[in-house]
Amino acid sequence: MPAEKQPIPSVWARPRPKREQPSLSRDRIVSEAIQLLDTEGTDALSMRSLGARLGAGATSLYRHVANKDELIELVVDEIYGEVRVPAADPARWRAAVTESAHSLRSMVLRHPWVASVLGQVGLAYLGPNLMRQSERMLALFKAAGFAVDEADQAMKLLIAYVIGMTTSEAAYLSVLARSGQNEQDWLESLRPTTEQALQDYPLLRDGRTAEQTRDPEQIRAESFVYGVERILDGLETRLTRPPAC
Rank of each mutant, 00 (worst) to 15 (best):
A177S: 12
L204M: 14
T98D: 07
A177Q: 15
S60Y: 11
L158D: 05
T39F: 10
I79Q: 06
K142H: 10
A154W: 02
L37D: 01
G81F: 02
V83L: 05
W113C: 00
D200N: 15
A33S: 12
G51Y: 07
L126C: 02
P17R: 03
Q35R: 13
L118I: 15
Q133Y: 03
E236Q: 13
V97P: 00
L24K: 04
S10Y: 10
E40G: 03
A151H: 01
L158G: 01
R110T: 09
Q21H: 15
Q35C: 09
A101T: 01
L109K: 06
P7W: 12
V148Q: 09
Y201M: 13
E20R: 04
L235M: 12
Y62I: 07
R191W: 14
I8Q: 02
P112F: 00
Q133A: 01
L123C: 10
A197T: 12
A44H: 13
S179V: 01
S168H: 13
D27V: 13
A56L: 02
R220M: 12
L123F: 14
H64P: 04
P90V: 02
L138D: 07
W113F: 14
P202H: 09
L138R: 00
A13Q: 09
A160S: 15
E217R: 13
N182F: 02
V11S: 11
A44S: 15
A154F: 01
R63I: 09
P86N: 02
K5M: 09
N182M: 05
V75E: 06
A147S: 13
Q120C: 00
Q181H: 15
Q133M: 11
R53A: 04
P9W: 08
